[in-house]
Structure formats: C-alpha cells, structure tokens
Design a protein around this nucleic acid. Structure first.
Length: 968
RNA sequence: GGGCGCUUAGCUCAGCGGUAGAGCGUCUCCUUUACACGGAGAGGGUCGUAGGUUCGAUCCCUACAGCGCCCACCA
C-alpha cells in the first residue's frame, strides 16, 4: 500500500465492477427495502443538494443491502416539462426560430433528441458519487410504461368525477403563455404605487356623494372593472350602494355593491372590482353575479374589449398611458409609494397575470374530492402510516392539505403528457386512454370530427405516480425498455411498495410528496413510503444560499477531483452575462479559493455530508471540514497499512476481483465471531485474548449498537461521529499502540491473537463504514479479507457488522481505562514539564492498592513502551521517596523523579492548579450532598453517583496534597 | 396575518433535567520505525435576555429580543 491514500486511483476502479457484477440489483431474498430516487430533471446537473441527498440515500441503501434485505434503489429522470421545453426553445432562438416555426410534432421530436443526447449526464455524476442505484431499472417520466400509467390515472379520475374541466381564473405566465399552479408562483415584495382615482356617480342625489375614490396598485385593470365595492356597514357610502358610477376612460356604467371583503380602513374604503384579473375580485364577482370583462391577451397586452386607444399595448405601457390620461382628466387624486406582493413565475420570472382560461383540474376541495383524495392523504400522516423525520414537517404537510385548492393540471406547452381528451364540434368532451376508448365510453355520439386537447399535463402529475408507475403499474405484463430489457414487473415488484423511506427536500413536500401520497393511496390503497426524511438545504460555509450570481456555488465533482483557480474562475463566471456580477463573482472566488480546490475524493465528501446531517434545517458546507474528513480517510488507510505490515504474508491467497468465483459463503450469515477464519490462531483462542483485544471488541460492540440506532433515526451526524471516534480515538490511538508491544513481545500466542483481532476489528470497521465511504473501504477490504480467509469478492457481499459478533467484556474495559489514566497522567507531566518526548524517564509507583499492583504488573511492558520510560518500579517500603512529579490515578501515585528533569517550582504550581480544580469540584459535590432537599428528592442513583464522585475526588485530593507536602 | 425553525468555545455545529462536547482554527512541544492528511498536551463557554416550574435548568414553561424559512386574497 502507498503511504497515503489517493482517492482518484481507488475510486476509478470499483464502481464499474460493482455495477457490472449486478451488485445493485435486488436479490429477491429477504425483507424488501426500497428507496425512490427523486427523479432529477433531465436538464439537471449534480449540485451540492443532490450530492448530499444521494449520500444519505446511498448510505441507507448500502446498509440495508448489507443487512440482508431485498434492496431496490429505484432511479430515473423527470421530463421536467417547462424547464426542458425552455432549453430547446432557447436553442431555437439562437437559430432565430420559435417552436411555432417547427410545429408541434417536429418540436417535440427535437426535444426527445436533445433528451437522448444530454439527458442522462447526471447519471455519470451520480456514479462518481458512488450512488448504488439499480440502473437496469432506470425509468423516465415520459417513457412508454409511465405514459400508460398517466393516461390510466387521468381517465380513472375523470370517470370518477375527480378531474374536471372548467373556465377559471388561473395563474397565467404571459411569457411562457401557460397556466401554472399556485405552487409555481412566488410572491415577491416590490416597490410600487397606490393610485387613487375618482369615479363619478351617475345622477348623484343631493346630500349624497357625487363621486367615489378608489385605490389601486394596478390602474390598467380598471378597463375591466365591473363594479365598485364598499363595506356593507360603511355609512359614508351606504347611500351609494345600488347606484352606478361611470368608469372613466371606458365610459361604462358600473354598479356600486356592498361586500364585507372590503376593509373600511384601507385607502378610501372603496375597491374597484375586476373579476377577470384578480382572484379576490373574481370571488366577489361570483358572489354578486357580475360579468367578467377580460381586457388582456394571453401575452398580457390590452385586447379589444378595451377602448381603442389602448388596444395592443403591453400591460405596463398601458398603465403609464392610463395614468397620464386620468391625470389629464383630473381624476388621479393621489399617487403614493406602496410596497406590494407581486406574483412572479418561478420558471420565467415573469409577473403572473390572473387569467380566465379553460383548464383541467383535480378536485381536491369538494366533498367528493376531499373524501376520495385529500382526506386519505391527511389521514395517512395523522395516523402515523407515514412519518416525517424530523417530525415537525408533519405540521407543514397537514396545514397545506387543510387549505388546499384544486390542482390545475393542464399546461399550454408541447413537451409533456398530452391530455387524453377530445372535443367534438359542439364542444362535448370525450376522455379515454385513446380516441376509440373515449368514444366508447361517451354517453353521446360526437358531433362531427374529434379534435384532441392541445394541452399537456403538469410535470408533477407524472412524478406523482412515481412510487408505483416505476414498478410496472398498471400493466400485468413485464414492462420493457426500448432495448427490450425488462425494467419492471408489477406482479413481482409490488413488494417494493411502500418504499421504506423517501429522502427529499422540504421545497417539494407540496409539489411531490403530498401528491404521491394522494395518487398512491387512491390507486394502490397503500402509502407510497413509510417514512419521509426531509434533508437539510446545503448552504455555503457562511450560511448563505448557494447561487451562481453570488459565486458561492460548489460543484461536488470539483471537490472530489479538485480544480485549479483559473479553471474555477472560468467556470464560475462562464454563464454570467452582467459584467458587474462577473467581476463580483470572480473576486469572491479568488478570495475564497486562492489556491483553487484540492481534491478530497468522493469518500471524504460523503463522510462530510454524513457528519453534517443532523436534524437541522440547513447545513453549512465548509471545505475545511471536508479536508478534516479527508484526513480521516488517510488515517484509516494508514491504520490498514500498519495492520497489513504486521501480518506475515500468507501463501496462495485468493485476492481481488475476478480471480475466483463470487462466493457467497460469508454472505449474511449469523454465525458468531464474524465468520472469520481462525487459521491464524490456535484452537480456543478466545481465552487467550489479551485485555486490550477484549477491550477494543467491547468498544466495537458499543459503537455498532450506536450506529444501528442512528441508522433507524437517520442521525448520520451521530453515526459518522461514532465511527470516526471508534476508528481514530480508540482503534488507532490506543489499540494499535497497545498492540505494538504485543506484536513485538515474546508471547507468540498473544502476538497471534493480537494480529487476528487487529484484522478482525479493522474488517468490521470497514464494513461498518462502507455505507458512508464505499470506495476506500472496498479498496482496503480487498487486502484485508484474504488475510482473514474471507472468500467473497467484494465488501458488498459481507453482512453489515452486528453487535452480537463481538463480545462485551466490562472487566477488560476497566483494566484498559486504568492503563489509559496512567499513561495520560505521565504524558501530561511530560508535556507540561517540557520533557522531550524521546527522552526515556524513570517511573516509580507508590501507594495504590492490590488492584493497582496487579494491573501495573500486567501492563508493565505497555507502559514502558508507550510512556517511553524505564520499567516501572514500585517504591520499596523502606526506600526514601525522591522528589518527583506525580500523576494520581485513584490512590496510586505515578512518580517521575525530578532529578535533572523537572523544575520543582513548576511542579508545585502544577499541583496547586490541580488541587484547586479538585477542591472546587469537591465543594460542588458537598454543596449538593449537604442540601437535604437534594438528598431527599433526587433519585437514589443520582445521590449515590454524587457520593461516589465525592469519594473519588477526595482520594485524589489526598494523594495530591501528600505529594505537595513531600515537595515542600 | 398564520405556521415552523434557530440563538451553546474564535468559526461551523452536536447535546440535554443531575460532572458543558466535537470538527476546524489558536498556542506549546515533537520528523518516535502506520499516518506531519501525523503524535503528545494546553487554552477557550456565567449555553440570546428576563421571569417561572424543580432538590437541581443550557435542557421544561412563559414573555421578550435578534436571525431565518414556509404559507396567506388587504385593493
């Protein structure tokens, strides 16, 4: 093995071997365990959020797989309607064309072509991450099988009366010229104005007002006004209700109505009502039986319902003109600045225009829709069939469903699942899986020819079916891909429903999670998943959201492979068009990464994600931290190197992949002592184990218990930390060091036993770590396994380590803890007294009890080796004690004679400090124990513990004081 | 307006009714034969503020302050 580990070299070889050997496919045996990959957009590239999320999923999947479960990680991509269509439209724009120049069929063809060429780039990146997806079952939300599922769901819901078509006010994106759902609209606060406009009353009566002043932030919509509303109890305007006012500019007469939606205190208490262009006004219009006057075209220009002079003008241009005209007529009473919420399309950044259009909806709000779809989705979470982790997301989910609106599922796009509906010439609707089916199920004969609906479905409609459509539903036959390979078979694959855990971001709880629950419950009567783990959002080291325009994004692959500063600068600024932004970003990149980014490798990146994955809502990705975990990988590597260096090479070992047949001999067996060959050891070696071996096995047992727990609660931070501490602070810091005297000592049996334990514990640690750091563990395992006589060809075939493989020995642990205390005491003195680490010092033992005596004898060689001292010697009873520095362990004093080594004053100061510390601890203890309330009320165990502590401290204090006296 | 988080060591974060922890950074010593991507040690916190519950509060409760996110129809 090389002196330090090189991620690049080891990562390049393993993934393809695992994949080629079919390691990621379900075994068909054991309890099913499955995870759905949230299908990335075909347009997507891997970002830090993906990398984090996929690390979590891969860790869970690998753990389940090694635990003997029948494991499926279902992968695939989403057609991402708008996003993908836009990319291809942009390409066309570069050629000076629009999609209309091509026509629908040619355009869609071109999108498919683009999808084929660049669609699966993210898969390559996922492979670099080590994501063990079963690629042979890869699906696409628009592949043939999934299209069948989409049509079936649409048709069934339509026939059940749960999907309807209606002319409704919807959120309209005038740039993309399509409807979008509520969720695809962001409300952004912007500076605007509140304009007050005077409307004159028709035939005013004496003593009553002759005009009203309305306030608006959107004066251009007044051309579509159909009423003015006041509050029913507003005395100022009571006499006007039922009268008419003249709508300026349009010169239409419109009524004054009363509606308690109006806030009397806001503005003048008069509101213009424009049902065709405002959601509230639409509702008022419905209540009062008002007509709607639509004054906008689909690309947000003034239409022919408006006075001539405004027709064809863009909405903002019209606003200016209207304000000017009002001003000219003296009707603009006031203009004042006003902050308002502007609805903005997530996809195009265009300001959304409420627009009256014909659209398709899923009924989620009528009694029927609630009962059939919404309520079951709520109940599944409320009754615990689906659990959110962390739990508090439950509230978010249920509150949204409690206030849900019908889901607008039609989009005026070309790329997507075309709605399976047809119209005859009389406008009758025919819905079916195809035209024939639609006709067959219709109650009436179509009038004239049928014409298919032009619209496509919301992209989330097909992803809502992901949990079961990917498994082959609704076909009873195996589903094949275009190469004729079977990708799913509902009859056999339904065991993977419900999936075990869904790992996803909170931002798509509504878009995706809730809708999967709805569809899956409705069509399969099962929940789609048992658990929803909401992963944190990845931010930069300072907690800032990562964004290209800030220049603080990180490409996971750049962390893995490293990147030079010039390349990073070029990459970060490539897509930025505004010079000022470019400059700012470049500056930042140069500041944050003056030397570029050093390669840390996939394993270190994954370990970092795991270590950061607490239940916190955001995680701040700090490169420094990742470098720390790279060091951990190197530590592990070198520990393995040490172990292998100390094993005598074995003859005729089968090594590596491909040399032997794949053996499953050791796969998931439950035999004790890790199924490890004992050919290195004599029979009955169990009794021959040294104290240190029994101690490290006890530690391993405890660590594995903890790890298992953290897997079930998704606490990857704790999991990573437990393993980190075990490997570094227990195995490397102590066990390897303790093993050195044993390996080099005279006791051949102890040496052999130690070698075996070094290997066995390392091998188990590799297995335990593998779900998080798959590459390095496989690489090392390949070298370690043969030494243990293990036959499998990959660590993937080994069972995840279980606690019961490793015996607990509390007595041995106590022995080693004693040893560690002695050693730590000596080291502390050495360090604080500035005794050169290499200097061999004499060591005397004094006082202590029989246990100390026994232990000192037993650990003599280890103490000598690790403390770099002469063989420890007990102070004879008649021997006069030399002036010495002392470490106190219980009642034992470990003495380092001063002669030539230690400054007497310094030692006194050191002792005084320790004494002061212990005295303060003692006074705390005494304070508690002297408090009758504490002794009476606190649990006995707590009181006892406090007493024990007091005794312990007191003993040490005595020893320290005695030592102090001797030095005086 | 409703909801949900967060506030602990210089930084990033765990923790949790009963001795305040980690990583990184800082300081000291050390190229000791697995590892300087290392070893040995040190320093550093009245756990946002104010009350309350309790024998005991960083942890539970209540208010307050600051920060953040998500939903929502005040023109």
């Amino acid at each position: 093995m090389d002196k330090s580990f090189d991620p690049k070299e080891i990562e390049s070889k393993w993934y393809a071997r695992w994949e080629d050997a079919g390691c990621f496919k379900p075994t068909g045996e054991g309890e099913p365990y499955s995870i759905l990959l949230p299908p990335p957009n075909v347009t997507g590239t891997l970002h830090m959020g993906h990398a984090f999320q996929q690390t979590v999923m891969d860790a869970l999947i690998r753990h389940a797989r090694m635990s003997g479960k029948n494991t499926l990680w279902q992968g695939g991509t989403d057609h991402a309607g708008i996003a993908t269509q836009k990319i291809v439209e942009n390409q066309l724009a570069a050629e000076g064309k629009t999609r209309h120049d091509l026509g629908r069929e040619k355009f869609v063809e071109r999108v498919w072509q683009w999808k084929e060429e660049s669609g699966n780039g993210i898969y390559k990146q996922m492979r670099r991450l080590g994501a063990s997806v079963d690629w042979s079952r890869e699906r696409f939300t628009m592949d043939e099988g999934l299209s069948v599922a989409v049509r079936k769901v649409f048709v069934e819901w339509y026939r059940a009366g749960l999907i309807y078509r209606g002319n409704r006010l919807v959120n309209w994106d005038p740039v993309l010229t399509t409807a979008v759902s509520d969720l695809e609209v962001n409300n952004v606060e912007r500076d605007g104005h509140l304009w007050s406009i005077r409307y004159d009353v028709v035939d005013p009566q004496a003593g009553a007002p002759d005009h009203v002043v309305i306030a608006t932030t959107r004066p251009e919509t007044m051309l579509g006004d159909v009423a003015v509303a006041v509050h029913p109890l507003d005395e100022r305007y009571a006499s006007l209700v039922g009268k008419k006012v003249t709508l300026p500019l349009a010169n239409r007469e419109i009524p004054v109505i009363a509606d308690d939606y109006v806030e009397r205190e806001f503005g003048t208490g008069c509101v213009k009502i424009t049902p065709a262009h405002d959601f509230n006004d639409y509702a008022i219009g419905q209540r009062h039986g008002l007509d709607s006057v639509n004054i906008l075209t689909l690309d947000a220009k003034i239409n022919d319902n408006a006075p001539k002079q405004y027709r064809g003008m863009d909405r903002y241009e019209a606003r200016k003109r209207i304000l000017a005209d009002l001003e000219g007529e003296g009707r603009l009473v006031e203009t004042k600045p006003h902050k308002l919420q502007v609805p903005v399309s997530q996809r195009s950044d265009a300001v959304i225009e409420p627009m009256l259009t014909d659209q398709w909806f899923v009924d989620l709000t009528s009694d029927k829709g609630r009962a059939a779809i919404t309520q079951p989705a709520l109940d599944a979470v409320r009754n615990g069939d689906i659990k959110f982790v962390p739990e508090n997301w439950t509230t978010t989910y249920t509150q949204w469903l409690d206030n849900i609106q019908d889901w607008c599922i039609s989009r005026q796009l070309w790329w997507g699942h075309r709605i399976p509906a047809w119209y005859d010439e009389a406008g009758n609707i025919f819905v079916g899986e195809d035209e024939a089916d639609a006709r067959a199920h219709a109650g009436t004969q179509p009038v004239g020819a049928l014409r298919r609906d032009e619209d496509v479905l919301d992209t989330w409609f097909s992803s809502a079916l992901w949990p079961f459509s990917t498994l082959g539903w609704p076909s009873n036959e195996p589903v094949k891909n275009e190469r004729g390979e079977i990708v799913a078979n509902w009859q056999t694959d339904k065991v993977f429903l419900p999936s075990s855990v869904l790992v996803t971001g909170f931002d798509i709880i509504f878009f995706w999670v809730a809708r999967m629950v709805m569809t899956t419950l409705y069509f399969t009567r099962q929940v789609p998943f048992r658990q929803v783990y909401i992963n944190a959002i990845v931010r930069d080291a300072e907690g800032q959201k990562m964004s290209k325009s800030k220049g603080n994004t990180l490409d996971p692959l750049d962390l893995i492979d490293g990147i030079t500063l010039p390349a990073l600068v070029e990459k970060s600024t490539r897509s930025l068009l505004i010079p000022q932004v470019r400059e700012k970003v470049e500056k930042r990149v140069r500041r944050d990464y003056p030397g570029g980014i050093a390669a840390i490798g996939t394993d270190a990146l994954r370990f970092t994600f795991a270590a950061l994955a607490s239940y916190s809502r955001t995680i701040n990705f700090d490169l420094k931290r990742a470098e720390g975990y790279k060091a951990f990988c190197n530590k592990l590597w070198n520990a393995a190197r040490f172990v292998l260096m100390n094993i005598e090479p074995l003859s005729s070992q089968e090594r590596g992949w491909g040399e032997g047949s794949v053996s499953t001999e050791d796969h998931h067996e439950t035999e004790p002592s890790s199924g490890v060959s004992r050919h290195l050891l004599p029979e009955g070696e169990g009794e021959a184990k040294t104290e240190a071996e029994r101690w490290i096995l006890t530690k391993l047992h405890a660590t594995l218990a903890e790890v298992e727990q953290h897997f079930t609660t998704c606490r990857f931070d704790h999991l990573a930390q437990a393993l980190y501490e075990f490997v570094w602070n227990e195995y490397c810091d102590w066990f390897l060091e303790l093993s050195k005297p044993a390996l080099n000592g005279d006791d051949a049996e102890a040496a052999a036993s130690t070698r075996h334990t070094l290997l066995a514990v390392l091998e188990a640690a590799l297995r335990a770590l593998h779900p998080i750091v798959p590459f390095i563990t496989e690489e090392i395992w390949q070298q370690v396994a043969p030494q243990l006589g293990l036959k499998g060809s990959s660590i993937l075939e080994r069972a995840y380590p279980r606690t019961d493989e490793f015996a607990v020995d509390e007595a041995a642990s106590a022995e080693i803890e004693w040893f560690k205390a002695v050693l730590t005491g000596v080291r502390k003195i050495r360090s604080e007294m500035n005794i050169a680490p290499g200097k061999v010092i004499p060591l005397l033992l004094a006082d202590g009890d029989a246990e100390d005596c026994r232990r000192a004898g037993k650990f003599s060689a280890q103490i000598e080796f690790l403390a770099r001292c002469e063989a420890p010697r007990w102070l004879a009873s008649d021997e006069s004690e030399p002036a010495a520095a002392a470490a106190v362990v219980g009642s034992l004093r470990v003495l380092i004679p001063l002669a030539g080594l230690i400054d007497l004053d310094a030692e006194r100061t050191r002792l005084a400090k320790e004494i002061a510390h212990i005295e303060s601890e003692i006074s705390k203890c005494e304070g508690k124990l002297g408090n009758a309330n504490f002794v009476d009320h606190a649990p006995t165990a707590v009181v006892e513990q406090e007493r024990a502590r007091l005794a312990d401290w007191s003993g040490q204090l005595d020893a320290l004081r005695m030592q102090m006296e001797r030095l005086s």
